[in-house]
Nucleic acid binder design. Structure first.
Lengths: 250, 250
DNA sequence: AATATCTGTTCAGTAATACAGAACAGCTCC
DNA sequence: GGAGCTGTTCTGTATTACTGAACAGATATT
């Protein structure tokens, strides 16, 4: 039996943190205990510790917990360290203004899309912050652009996992997706045809690091009526062209 | 000996997280062990566990660790839950445009300022994101506006703690600060006279919750030449006036 | 209004495990 | 080539985290 060098009680505590989501931002002791199939008292001790340190906040009115401001601060430290974010910002502004649509930039994190930034064209109002949002690889433009450039092994892992349909356009058949991934590699861009959000089409171009490995992707998305096939091809060309002008060091 | 209901190994792990800062975003095993006066192997196990779960990332080139993207995601969940943020946004835009200077909004978190948002006037380019940044209470406009409205006990705690000077204008004498806090209470606004950043003046107005407790503050700041005493008073009046129009539910 | 059934909380004993400490390995710099 | 760093591995022991049951407070039900 090899040693695994991990602190198991810490693993349990992190599992507790992972219970919180946008849909369930507030959870109680029993709720979490049921989710993780653990003892109430165990969860209670973990929650108390997290609360004392500011990682969780306890709502006194209903005794439920939510993620605390300390996490916001930790995230700020990361954010100020993501230099790639600032490098891409002017570049994204150009794309947003050249296309007149929203431009997204996402990184590959594990086997998920991690949204880093959204830039709106001058004509649109800047909306909410999306830094830190996540989305699956199989049904988003950014995701498919990255997925197509992963190893066969990683692709299998994604395609063999659960792929719940987000809209009636979501591609849930692994074989159909495999064919599309080949097309993406040949074209150099991926298209999301309302697969993640109905009525929204999206074109995404992969971004590679200097080592040749996939880093992330840049996309432009908007209402489907404005995104007919010719527009899609033209938009992909614009992004690809602008990407070439970008000096990077990753 | 009363039970404390906390998981001590988790406390240690959180202490490890707290070692990371903007100045030291990357730390090694020995470095952390020295900081916390703990065994190297203990830190190693904690770091390994954090890394496996994505909370920390290990840089393979130098074996140092940094905060990972999972924290970014957790912070995103919080962010989308801070409704006060969106409530204040249009209001801050009005102030930024009415004064032509940057408008800040911060919450009181513990005994520190937690920056929530910065809005730049139309004439200035939006700069970096500051959500999650922190600053002390004793030497910032936002901080002093809040500090003046805390309990005597909390004020003592801040004034008796270390108050390192950020600039040559930073007020480090508790007695001088006490007099100023009284002025702030009477005037209804606080002034930061280059105490945190040299050359930058700032006017801040406190924001109270419905219960009457201090929640945070709103400030306007800019280069000192533009912020002479009459301008400061006028700016404070603008913020106060706009604040009255804000319907809140906190 | 009284009971039932949820919550969150406390506590003591035991089984698990986290940590100390030493030894090893890989690296850089003298 | 060795001396000083790193990070990593490993084992025994003492700490302590978890189990499980009992209690308390709130809410819902009858």
């Amino acid at each position: 039996m090899p040693k695994d060098n991990t602190v198991k009680s810490l693993k349990r505590a992190i599992a507790v943190l992972d219970c919180f989501s946008q849909k369930e931002p507030e959870l109680g002791v029993t709720e979490i205990a049921r989710k993780l199939d653990m003892q109430k008292s165990t969860i209670f001790n973990i929650l108390t510790t997290f609360q004392e340190s500011g990682i969780l906040i306890k709502n006194p009115s209903n005794n439920k917990y939510q993620l605390g401001y300390k996490l916001l601060h930790l995230s700020y430290i990361i954010n100020s360290g993501i230099s790639i974010r600032e490098d891409f910002l002017p570049f994204m502004k150009e794309i947003a203004n050249a296309t007149g649509e929203v431009c997204y930039f996402g990184l590959l994190d594990g086997l998920e899309v991690l949204y880093i930034d959204a830039v709106y064209p001058m004509t649109q109002l800047q909306a909410r912050n999306i830094l830190g949002e996540r989305a699956p690889l199989y049904c988003t433009g950014l995701g498919k652009a990255m997925l197509a450039n992963l190893s066969e092994e990683q692709i299998n892992e994604v395609l063999s996992g659960p792929m719940p349909p987000f809209t009636k356009c979501t591609i849930t058949d692994p074989d159909v997706l495999r064919i599309e991934l080949e097309e993406i590699r040949q074209n150099g861009f991926a298209v999301d045809n309302m697969e993640h959000e109905f009525g929204i089409r999206c074109v995404a171009v992969p971004v590679f690091g200097l080592s040749g490995k996939i880093l992330g992707a840049v996309s432009v998305s908007g209402p489907s009526p404005r995104f007919d096939p010719p527009t899609i091809v033209r938009t992909a060309a614009i992004i690809t062209e602008k990407l070439k002008t970008l000096q990077r060091c990753y």
